[in-house]
Amino acid sequence: MKHSFFAFMRKTGTSLPGFRLTLGATLVWAGFLVAFPLCALLARPWQDGVGAMVAALHDSRMFAALWTSFSSAAIAAACNVPFGLMLAWALARGQLPGRWLADALIDLPLALPTAVSGITLATLYGPNGWLGAPLSRLGITVSYTRAGIVVALMFVGLPFVVRAVEPVLRNLPHDLEEAAVLLGARPWQVVTRVLVPPLLPAVVTGFGLAFARGVGEYGSVIFIAGNQPFRSEIAPLLIVVRLQEFDYAGATAVALILLVISLLVLLLVGSMRRKLALWSEPA
């Protein structure tokens, strides 16, 4: 019985052993650590009946928090696109002086623990911070506002855009630009017609990754965000608040919506990417 199960699972015959062992180990590991908790997430909201779930959905504070999360993540990811393109160009094509150092620094937001980024950004952009003080003199308040959320999400999302675009830019042949110039294209036409379009799929990927990260981000945002319900409260924080109120159903509802929309956005980004990259598919 057990043997036939493995035989059924296996599609191609290879001479390598270890299939049963590794499949078993992987299923136990991923099953207990991912599939099992995921089931709880999917099932829990309906446990108290459909009525409770519907009631949980009638929560304007939740929708405000979801809107704050998604819109801030989208704005931050969009703002990262031009900066990311510039840095990717500097690293891959522009022979930026001190490139090795810049290259290491780009990964800093990924490496820095979110709590560290959180308190650092909050202090840096706070009213007396190194960057917050000059900005407040210009009449711009960053900390404890929506702008703070966007700044924090830009910080954590930047490496995704740079790292998605950089290899594509590096592999783009140099003679494309020369060919375009010889055919009479002016500098801005070279950029808009020859350099940017092949990068678009990578830009979309980078945007999608930065956005997905931004939607769920917690640690680097909560210190700078102010966390006022309906105004500067992000969805992950609302989950924590609901848990502190022992409202598991409410917390799970927010979590489930967050997860579903994130996955939908990733799917959308994936299909957009494929559409933009139609030309790259070999026959």
């Binding site: 997430l41 979110t114 769920g216 989950i239 924590v240 979590a255 967050l258 997860l259």
Partner: peptide
């Protein structure tokens, strides 16, 4: 692709 908070929840 999951929020850390959901991963704890």
């Amino acid at each position: 692709s999951m929020s850390p908070v959901v991963s704890g929840l």
